[in-house]
């Protein structure tokens, strides 16, 4: 009986553990991890603004106006043109959760 209990226990572990890992693995949406090359968390002395703490709506509006050219920029117009609306929304929602 002890052997059977162990067997069942092993089965459960084997089937559950990878799923448990996958559940705890939280990846940023496509493209978001590249932003951190220039955009630092708060407290870093740089001319590039931080994205942490901005609302998703602010980031989406800014990216859309960079992309349309309504908001003049040095480099962000060229970068914003590489992203669709859903991609921008996903990145913005993710950054809005970073504190």
């Amino acid at each position: 009986m002890a052997g059977r209990a162990l067997f069942v226990g092993l089965m459960l572990l084997a089937s559950v553990t990878p799923g448990a890992h996958a559940a705890t693995l939280e990846l940023p949406p496509a493209g978001a991890s590249s932003c951190g090359g220039c955009h630092a968390p708060p407290g870093v002395d740089t001319a590039v603004p931080t994205l942490h703490g901005k609302t998703a709506a602010e980031i989406v509006a800014q990216m859309q106006s960079f992309r349309s050219g309504a908001q003049p920029s040095t480099v962000m117009d060229r970068i914003a043109k590489g992203f669709t609306d859903p991609e921008i929304e996903a990145i913005a929602a993710w950054y809005a959760r970073q504190k």
Partner: peptide, 20 residues
């Protein structure tokens, strides 16, 4: 992110990358 996904039995998502 791809390696972490593979090690936990998942399928890596399609990435976007930026260079400046």
């Amino acid at each position: 992110a791809a390696v972490a996904t593979l090690l936990t039995g998942g399928t890596p998502p399609e990435p976007r990358l930026i260079n400046t």
